[in-house]
Write a protein that binds this DNA or RNA. Structure first.
Length: 350
DNA sequence: GAATCGTGGAC
DNA sequence: TGTCCAAGATT
């Protein structure tokens, strides 16, 4: 047993979790159900669902005979509902093809729907004591820091490296405890935000800690380039270029809504529009622009193409009014301007 | 390789 | 309040 596993197990004996519902009566079936529920789901959330589920379906055979609707009903609120469908389907396959016993070989286990390598390893390690590595989010974080593994764990090469370390450190005895220990360490000390390295049993050997770079591991998922957002604005300015009013195109976000002229006169019109539209303040492209100048004001139709601040959809802010044009434009407006307004604001079928 | 699935928590 | 993330697997 290497020092990683030895120190981890010594820590587990003192601080590890031993009272979780699926740790009592650790049968393959119960461990399986728990592992499926725990995929991308935190322990505190899972516990009541696990209790209800195993109370209703104490055995694999009972689950296999259940109605799909009832299985889903017990899952409702937990999310990732394909997990429930896969669990039920796998139970039926096991009842039919494996005499009702979960297969004890990892390759057979992984052929069942919803069971990947890490889940299969966890089931075999925790319920049967088989020497199988796991690589869940906790283990990834612990191993990435301990060995200073660079790169986003979602990448194949990084994942392969982490699996190698997971295999290397998995001891030949106390497998169930070790598996629980590495997850407990990740969940309680080696956390994503502020790891408690002072209390970590691996502290002196952790490469990230030695370098003081704990926060860099594991590397975050690369950011996607933010989407381009295009909008056409109808803008009314006075003779000095100050904004009077502007109206969004009839379709798309804030379609047809009029904006109040609340911007600081010293602020450029473009900056104000960018801010209002949730656009990033860098390198906007101002497309075709049509300006009509009249005695007291000028009217501009401008297309702005700009990278969004966020990838998420911008929501209606609710501080726009529908009835301003009646007051300010429709009355006493030069006929050419009115025609221009109607052309721009008229609904577009596309 | 990237998108998708879902809900709740942390910052 | 937005963003990322959590005991991943599947397409």
């Amino acid at each position: 047993m290497d020092s990683f596993a030895r120190r981890l197990l010594a820590w587990f004996d003192q601080y590890g979790r031993t009272d979780l519902p699926w740790q009592r009566e650790r049968t393959p079936y119960r461990v399986w159900v728990s592992e499926i529920m725990l995929q991308q789901t935190q322990v505190a959330t899972v516990i009541p669902y696990f209790e209800r589920f195993t109370e209703r379906f104490p055995t694999l055979a009972q689950l296999a005979e259940a109605e799909p609707d009832e299985v889903l009903a017990l899952w409702s609120g937990l999310g990732y509902y394909s997990r429930a469908r896969n669990l039920h389907e796998a139970a039926r396959q096991v009842a039919r093809g494996w005499q009702g016993e979960l297969p004890g070989h990892i390759d057979d286990l992984m052929m069942l729907p919803g069971i990947g390598r890490s889940t299969a390893g966890a089931i075999l390690a925790q319920s049967l004591g088989q020497r199988q590595p796991i690589l869940d989010g906790n283990a990834k974080r612990v191993l990435a820091r301990y060995h200073a593994v660079d790169g986003w764990p979602g990448r194949t090469a990084v994942q392969r490296q982490l699996w190698e370390w997971a295999e290397t450190h998995t001891p030949h005895s106390r497998i169930a405890d070790y598996t629980q220990a590495i997850m407990d360490l990740g969940a309680t000390l080696c956390t994503r935000g502020r790891p408690d390295c002072e209390a970590c049993p691996l502290g002196s050997d952790c490469q990230a800690r030695q370098a003081g770079t704990q926060a860099r591991y594991p590397a975050p998922k690369p950011r996607k380039t933010l989407p381009l957002r295009e909008t056409t604005m109808l803008i009314a300015q006075d003779a000095n270029g100050r904004l009077l009013l502007w109206r969004r195109p009839p379709t798309g976000i804030w379609g047809g809504l009029w904006s109040l002229p609340e911007h600081d006169p010293d602020e450029s019109l473009l900056d104000w529009c960018r801010e209002s539209l949730g656009l990033e303040a860098s390198e906007p492209t101002v497309g075709p622009e049509i300006t009509h100048t009249f005695s007291h004001f000028r009217l501009t139709i401008s297309t702005v193409l700009c990278r969004a601040k966020t990838a998420t959809e911008v929501k209606d802010r609710g501080d726009f009014s529908w009835d301003l044009p009646e007051e300010l434009f429709q009355r006493g407006l030069p006929a050419p301007v009115r025609r221009l307004l109607e052309a721009v604001t008229e609904p577009v079928d596309s």
